[in-house]
Amino acid sequence: MVASLVLLGFSSLANAFDLQQLSDQLAKPSVIHGNFIQEKHLRALPQPLTSKGTFVLARDHGLLWLLKTPLQQDYRISAKGIARRDGSAWQMLPGKSAGAEQNRIFLAVLQGDSSGLQRDFELSLSGEAQHWTLTLTPRSMLLKQVFNQINIDGGELVQRIELLETQGDSTVLRMQDTTSANPLSDAEQHDFAE
């Protein structure tokens, strides 16, 4: 049995899609634009809470998360933290919240930062470059209190993220109409620069 597994491992080694290849693939585009649909499934509610919007992921700057419905709210997530647009200015949000940790993880996922994720999660990758699934299982007690697991599916780019929480709630995030063909607009550059 072990010998056949070893042989199988060696025979597929040349074709295996690994974490480094996934990281390289996700880190390649300098700018990604797209739409998102987020469904928050709460045990107490029969229907999920759904929000929609657009996003801009810029490798050297971070993420603009522009919520359109059910309410309009813009967020900027970067290495400095999370900021929310308040009128024409960005206001930094407190950094020691569960939401801040979720957003840090989210940014690492979208940017293909597997080394950052490996600090906090056991990573299990299956599939190939154009159709893969990455499963994150929390390592730390803090994250184990929040998440059972995180499932990420994609192709060239991330397409779906599912957060399974310990209390039975879950969030499904679908990234749609993503493209890496367009550079940052002047307005997006301004939003990242503030």
Rank of each mutant, 00 (worst) to 15 (best):
L67I: 07
V56I: 13
Q130K: 15
D60N: 09
A79P: 05
L107D: 03
A79Q: 11
L134Y: 05
S140A: 06
L64T: 12
A98T: 00
E128Q: 14
Q73D: 04
A58P: 08
Q91M: 08
T54N: 12
L143P: 00
E101G: 08
A108I: 04
H61E: 15
L93Q: 07
W132K: 06
L143V: 11
K68I: 13
L107H: 07
F121Y: 04
N103P: 02
F106M: 10
S78R: 10
R139F: 01
F147W: 00
E128P: 04
L117Y: 10
E101I: 14
L117E: 05
G112S: 14
V146K: 02
Y75A: 12
S78C: 13
G81A: 10
D120Y: 00
L66S: 11
Q118F: 09
G127C: 12
A100Q: 01
D60V: 04
D120M: 00
M141A: 14
H131C: 11
V56T: 15
K96V: 00
H61F: 14
S115C: 06
S78Y: 03
L93Y: 01
G127H: 06
G112L: 07
K68C: 05
Q118Y: 11
S114I: 13
L136S: 02
S88G: 11
S124Y: 15
L107Q: 06
G87M: 07
K144Q: 03
G81L: 06
A100W: 00
D60A: 11
Q118I: 13
M141F: 08
F106P: 00
N103Y: 05
S88A: 14
L117I: 07
A83M: 13
L143T: 04
R76Y: 07
E122T: 15
G127T: 09
T54H: 12
Q111F: 01
A100G: 03
V109M: 09
D74V: 12
E101D: 10
Q72P: 09
E122F: 13
D113R: 09
L142N: 04
A89D: 14
P138D: 01
L142C: 02
L125V: 10
L57C: 12
